[in-house]
């Protein structure tokens, strides 16, 4: 058993109310939730592995696969949609050669789609790690992505 994993888990009292906070804490440390983490949480909280997996796969925050170094979050909010977000998404996918939810083979980028980044006044937007790129046009995408490689 991974010691660092148990250290994170054992900070929380053994109550089902802590299921989501535990998973959030593990993902923050380990980038994603692997099979071992899901089983360890289930055992610790006295739940079935299926129950933990059910919650982990239900909430969009939780990832069951390792992500790339740079996480690209593309906003698919309404304001972004009417301002041309679809073309931005296409441009990102085309430039990196991967689809939403995937990671590039070199492990540099992952694309995630998010419901709303809350910067609706600056639509369309995308976020790479913590930086927001606002009022985008698709011809700018290539340059932005190049600045990360």
């Amino acid at each position: 058993m991974d010691n660092s994993l148990m250290q994170i888990i054992e900070k929380f009292p053994r109550s089902r109310q802590n299921l989501i906070p535990v998973l959030q804490a593990i993902q923050k440390e380990q980038n994603y939730l692997n099979r071992e983490a899901v089983s360890a949480v289930a055992e610790y909280l006295g739940l079935g592995v299926a129950q933990v997996y059910g919650a982990a796969s239900f909430y969009t925050q939780f990832r069951l696969k390792k992500t790339g170094k740079n996480i690209i979050k593309i906003c698919k909010g309404t304001a972004c949609h009417v301002s041309g977000a679809d073309n931005i998404i296409d441009a990102v996918e085309r430039t990196l050669g991967i689809r939403k939810g995937e990671t590039t083979a070199d492990g540099k980028f992952s694309i995630e789609e998010v419901a709303c980044l809350g910067c609706c006044s600056l639509a369309p937007v995308l976020m790479i790690n913590d930086r927001v790129y606002a009022r985008l046009v698709s011809s700018e995408v290539k340059k932005i992505l190049q600045s990360y490689s």
Binding site: R16, Q17, N18, I20, L23, L45, F58, Y59, T60, F62
Partner: peptide, 25 residues
């Protein structure tokens, strides 16, 4: 309590389920 990203969890009974550590249905 921090949510984990599920639109339907804003519905009151789903939100209670989510706080209780269940799937937010």
């Amino acid at each position: 309590v921090r949510g984990a990203g599920a639109f339907v969890s804003g519905e009151s009974s789903a939100l209670i389920a989510s706080i209780s550590g269940k799937v937010g249905e």
